[in-house]
Every structure is written in structure tokens, then in C-alpha cells.
């Protein structure tokens, strides 16, 4: 187990370096340069040249790349061209908003999707099953931004229950009021997926011999379902939730734009528009790290659900 953990942790380093390299190249392939964008339409060519030099953009690409890697390995993500602030603290400042949002969406999708899928499977082909599966199909195919706008129209404008924009102070309880609508919008697709996967994997397990044995030995139906069926059905469900974390981080970009939440997604979009190279690189690396870590944790939880899975 220990060697497995160590190996997985070490594997993260080349993964993240690879991601860092790809972002480095892609953002530089995009036409337009930060100095021109920052100085605007009426800057003199001399001012642009001077700024490029200060930004280090006049150096050959391999030198820029070498310096970037060298600093990255020391944990230095550089400074933003636009705000001149250090990249990492800027990311850390925006991170809680995105983590709260993605976390709340995962929680919602489990709280709603899991029971809905289970009940659908146990009460297969009943009215509940039909309705919940159609609802899941509907949720899964709805574009995120549209769902967000619908929620805003209903809960903020019609009912006036929740604030429409912003995020409040992430450390206070007030942030919850701001979190509800965006997390509901973001939870739409994963809830549907969790419900459908839970349903199909429960249906598969429920037919197995050991379930018949459990019932035959006189276990209460609730215990059969909760203890034996659910536990065995959790592996594919966990995989889906884990994979969805990545999509949620991507989806939070859209939701943050719609709800004007000051999270990582908004930071990333702004820095891409400004060709703020270091800020883009740093933000993408942090988002990628989150994804890698979540996947790692998901892999670890498999052994909790199925003791036969042991990591060597």
C-alpha cells in the first residue's frame, strides 16, 4: 500500500510538468501578445517594446521555457503581467469560491442522485422510476448556462429568495445564500449521471446470487438494499463522481461567468483574454492538480467499498 501511494504521488510530478508544458505552448500559440493588449490601441511602438523587454518576452522561447520550469520547480509561479501581483496568492484568493461551488455541486448530486437512482432501481418500472429517469435525461441534456438563467429568473427575480450575483464573504455563513443557485445549476448534469449510473448498477447487483442468499436468510429488505446492494453498487458510482469533478471544475467556469462569481474560472478567462501568461499557466496547473488529486482519492475509496481491491 505504501509503495503504491508513493508511486502514485511521484507520478503526479511528471503529469503536472507535462500539463505545465502544454499550457506554456498553447497560450503562446494564441495570437496577440500581453504587452500590446495591456497598453491598448494608442500606445507607441517604443512603449510596447519597452514593456515586452520588462516582461521578458523579448527572450527566445526556449529561454523563457527554461526559466519558467526552473521557477516552477521552486514553487514560484511568477507574477501577473496585468496586476503585477504574485500568481499563487491570486489563485489562492479565488480558489475557495470555486471549491465551494464544485463541492456543493458534488454534495447535491450525491444527496439527490444517489437516493433517486436507488429508489428507481428498487421500484423499477413504476411511475417514480419513469419520472425520475425522464427528469435525469432532461437535466443531463440542459446547457449549464441556460439552467443557471432559469434558476435566476425563478428564485431571484420571481421569488426574490437569493442574491443574483457575486459570492459574499467565503468565510461567512452568508456565502451560503450566494452558493445555492450556482451550485444547483452546476449540479444538474452530475445529479442526472449519478442517478442513472446508480440505477443501472443497483439493477445489476440486485440480480446476483448473494442478494438472493441475503433475502433467503431472512434479512430485512431495507438492510439488503442498504448494506449489500448499495455497497457493491458504489464502485461505478464513485468513478462517475470522481470523473465528474473534472467536468465540474470546467463547468464552474461557465457558471462563474453567468453568476458573476469571483472564482478560478473567472480568473482564468480574464487572464486568457489579457494573455497574462503566468497567471494562465499557474491557474491551469492548480486546476489540473485538483483533478489529479481527486482522481487519486477516488481510486483510494474503491478499496473501502470492495475489500478485494488492494493496492500493491
Amino acid at each position: 500500500m505504501k509503495t503504491y501511494l508513493l508511486r502514485r504521488l511521484l507520478m503526479m510530478i511528471p503529469t503536472l510538468l507535462g500539463i505545465g508544458t502544454v499550457v506554456f505552448i498553447i497560450i503562446r500559440l494564441a495570437p496577440g501578445n500581453p504587452a500590446e493588449i495591456l497598453l491598448g490601441d494608442y500606445a507607441t511602438p517604443e512603449a510596447v517594446a519597452l514593456l515586452k523587454e520588462k516582461m521578458g518576452l523579448d527572450r527566445p522561447l526556449y529561454q523563457q521555457y527554461g526559466l519558467y520550469l526552473w521557477h516552477l520547480l521552486q514553487g514560484d509561479f511568477g507574477r501577473s503581467y496585468v496586476t503585477n501581483r504574485l500568481v499563487l496568492p491570486e489563485i489562492i484568493r479565488h480558489l475557495p469560491y470555486t471549491l465551494e461551488l464544485a463541492g456543493a455541486a458534488v454534495l447535491l448530486s450525491i444527496l439527490i442522485g444517489l437516493p433517486a437512482g436507488m429508489v428507481s432501481a428498487v421500484k423499477r418500472d413504476t411511475l417514480f422510476d419513469r419520472i425520475s429517469m425522464v427528469a435525469a435525461l432532461f437535466l443531463a441534456s440542459m446547457p449549464l448556462f441556460w439552467l443557471g438563467i432559469l434558476l435566476m429568473l425563478f428564485f431571484s427575480i420571481k421569488l426574490g429568495w437569493f442574491p443574483l450575483i457575486g459570492a459574499g464573504d467565503p468565510a461567512s455563513i452568508d456565502a451560503l445564500r450566494y452558493l445555492i443557485l450556482p451550485s444547483m445549476a452546476l449540479a444538474g448534469t452530475p445529479t442526472a449521471l449519478v442517478a442513472r449510473i446508480t440505477r443501472s448498477s443497483v439493477l445489476e447487483i440486485i440480480e446476483q446470487d448473494f442478494i438472493k442468499v441475503a433475502r433467503a436468510k431472512g434479512l430485512e429488505e431495507n438492510r439488503v438494499v442498504l448494506k449489500h446492494v448499495l455497497k457493491n453498487a458504489m464502485i461505478p458510482v464513485t468513478t462517475v463522481i470522481g470523473l465528474n469533478m473534472g467536468q465540474l471544475l470546467g463547468g464552474s467556469v461557465v457558471i462563474e461567468m453567468v453568476f458573476a462569481r469571483p472564482g478560478l474560472g473567472k480568473l482564468l478567462i480574464d487572464s486568457i483574454h489579457g494573455r497574462d501568461y503566468f497567471q494562465v499557466q499557474g491557474t491551469v496547473i492548480i486546476i489540473a492538480s485538483l483533478f489529479v488529486v481527486v482522481n487519486f482519492l477516488v481510486d483510494l475509496t474503491y478499496s473501502l467499498f470492495d475489500p478485494r481491491i488492494r493496492y500493491q
Partner: peptide, 10 residues
């Protein structure tokens, strides 16, 4: 979003 924020008074 901006127009909805005007409607809601935010």
C-alpha cells in the same frame, strides 16, 4: 445576467 440583476434590484 446584468439585466436580471437590475430586475432583482441587485
Amino acid at each position: 445576467t446584468a439585466l436580471m440583476a437590475l430586475e432583482s434590484g441587485d
